[in-house]
Amino acid sequence: MKRVAAVLRVDFVEGSVAHRLRFGGGRGQDLAKAMGLRAGKTPTIIDATAGLGRDAFLLASLGAQVTLIERSEEMHRLLAQGMERAEREGGQFREIIGRMTLLKGDAKDLIPELSGEAILVDPMHPERKNSALVKQDLRQVRDIVGSDEDAGDLVRLAIKHARKRVVLKWPAKADPIEGVQKCTHQIRGKTTRYDVFMIG
């Protein structure tokens, strides 16, 4: 019997996002460190490639004001629905969503008009040799948004406009994006690395 793919939805209240919220390790997490969240420092953040909104939600849960940018009409709709559901949940969820602002459009057009201390760029990652390793929801996102051929342009533009830092979230073993300057430093996890470009 053929398995029907689950309908993609953005869920901040249950599943992996809620688990990470409860047990994730706060500001000690690689993403938080890469973005510059530390004791007494909470930068304003632009998430230039919002996708499922998980990183933005985590950063907002740690106190950051996060502007999410999503250019895909379909992903933007799913994000808006997910944020509405979390807001209706009330309590801690409403408080976190209150620090998230969702914009629809191309980050390359919007970033010059925004003022972010730190910009996160998490483009679609190169296809893995073994596609079975890629979680179903991420495969579904790829089907919706495509492969982000302009990732290099976006990173370069972000470096031009961020006030303090740009962070590229990229597979741990993948080559650097062609045409992008060498990063200042990296934070490496098992499967993901954060290339940090400090400004000024």
Rank of each mutant, 00 (worst) to 15 (best):
Q136V: 09
A107V: 02
M75L: 05
L138R: 08
P176E: 07
A118K: 01
L133S: 14
A132V: 13
P126Q: 06
G91P: 07
G91Y: 10
E113A: 07
A151E: 03
G90P: 10
G105N: 12
L79T: 09
A162D: 13
M100W: 04
L78W: 01
D122G: 04
I69R: 08
K104Y: 09
R165V: 10
V141I: 11
S72F: 06
Q81I: 13
H76V: 06
A86R: 02
G82N: 04
Q140S: 11
D109W: 10
V134E: 09
E87Q: 14
R88N: 11
Q136S: 14
E70A: 00
F93N: 01
H125N: 11
W170T: 06
G179Y: 03
G98Y: 05
L114T: 01
P126N: 04
I96R: 01
I159L: 15
D122T: 14
M100Y: 02
K129L: 11
R94L: 09
L79D: 00
I96A: 03
L157E: 10
P176G: 12
S72G: 05
I159F: 14
P176R: 05
E178V: 12
I177M: 08
I159D: 14
V155G: 00
H161F: 15
E178F: 08
I159V: 15
E95D: 14
F93V: 02
A158Q: 04
R163H: 11
G90N: 09
L79E: 07
E73W: 12
F93H: 07
E70H: 09
I69N: 02
